[in-house]
Computed example of a mutant assay.
Amino acid sequence: MDIHLELLNESDFNTIVNWINHRDQDFMVQWSGLTYTFPLTVEQMQSHYHKGINSLDSDVFIYKIVEITSNEMIGSLQLCRFDSMKKEAVICRFIIGDSSRRGSGIGTLALKKAVQIGFTQFGLKQIRLNVFDINNTAIRCYERVGFKKGKMTENAYTSSQGVQWSNLEMILDKEIWEKNVPVSE
């Protein structure tokens, strides 16, 4: 399956809300941390992005993951929290919406494309992300793209089942990425 990233519009918020609300609160926390309350609403998202989206002034670029053949939005991710002094940003709120498409490599491909945008278009030197330690599938995806495990914050969240989740920061430096990116990209 071939995909591309394109900037998301606020009119796409409803699709994300539907993806999240087909799951549960714990899934939403994995996706967004404690930013929202479950069930997610378009109004919560609009309030959170009160400065707008897709500009440096808003400090967030939201990309939809689009399957090229069908032109269908199948996921989304964000590049945000830009630090112009350190030349770094954070990837967050990464989701493949249709669970039947997870595990097919789409996430890895989308992340590679987002990293490329960060390093080439925005001139970043480092990209970070956060993931809960219980999300082994996501961690493997991030490692395939070149992210390395960094600081662990123990017991950052208690799930609805009473399980303690630790937050893992993962980091990718531009120099590492440049050494490993295939020439064809």
Score class of each variant (00 low, 15 high):
Asp133Cys: 08
Arg140Gln: 09
Phe122His: 15
Ser76Gly: 15
Leu109Ala: 12
Met73Cys: 14
Glu72Asp: 10
Lys151His: 13
Leu129Trp: 04
Glu72His: 09
Asn180Asp: 08
Gln126Thr: 15
Ser160Thr: 15
Gly107Lys: 01
Glu67Met: 09
Gly123Val: 04
Phe147Thr: 06
Arg93Asn: 15
Leu79Val: 12
Asn71Tyr: 06
Phe82Ser: 06
Ser70His: 09
Asn155Ile: 09
Val90Met: 14
Ala110Gly: 06
Ala89Leu: 06
Gly146Glu: 04
Phe147Ser: 05
Gln78Lys: 14
Arg144Leu: 08
Asp98Glu: 12
Lys179Leu: 14
Ser84Asp: 13
Glu154Asp: 11
Met152Asn: 12
Glu88His: 06
Gly105Met: 03
Ile74Leu: 03
Leu129Thr: 05
Gln116Ile: 08
Asp98Gly: 02
Ser76Pro: 03
Trp177Asn: 01
Lys64His: 08
Glu178Cys: 03
Leu129Asp: 02
Asn167Asp: 14
Lys86Thr: 07
Val131Arg: 02
Ser159Ala: 13
Glu175His: 03
Phe147Met: 07
Ala89His: 02
Phe132Glu: 04
Ser84Gln: 13
Thr120Ser: 12
Asn136Lys: 13
Ser166Trp: 06
Phe94Ile: 09
Arg128Asp: 13
Arg144Tyr: 07
Met73His: 10
Arg93Leu: 03
Arg101Gln: 10
Ile127Leu: 15
Arg93Ser: 15
Glu169Cys: 01
Arg140His: 11
Val163Leu: 12
Glu67His: 14
Met152Phe: 14
Phe61Met: 06
Lys86Tyr: 11
Lys86Pro: 00
Ile95Pro: 01
Ile65Asn: 04
Gln126Gly: 01
Ile96Phe: 04
Asn155Gln: 13
Glu175Leu: 04
Lys179Cys: 09
Asp133Ser: 11
Gln78Trp: 05
Met170Asn: 02
Leu79Glu: 04
Gly146Ser: 02
Trp165Thr: 05
Gln78Phe: 04
Glu72Met: 10
Glu67Leu: 13
Asp83Phe: 02
Ile96His: 05
Asp98Arg: 05
Thr120Arg: 12
Leu79Gln: 08
Gln121Ser: 15
Phe61Asp: 05
Ser166Cys: 05
Gly107Ile: 02
Met73Phe: 06
Lys151Tyr: 12
Asp173Tyr: 13
Ile127Trp: 01
Trp165Ile: 07
Ala156His: 14
Phe147Asn: 04
Ile127Phe: 01
Gln116Pro: 00
Tyr157Gly: 09
Leu109Ile: 07
Glu175Ala: 09
Asp98Asn: 14
Arg128Gly: 08
Lys64Gly: 07
Lys148Leu: 13
Leu172Cys: 03
Val90Asp: 13
Thr153Leu: 13
Ile106Ala: 00
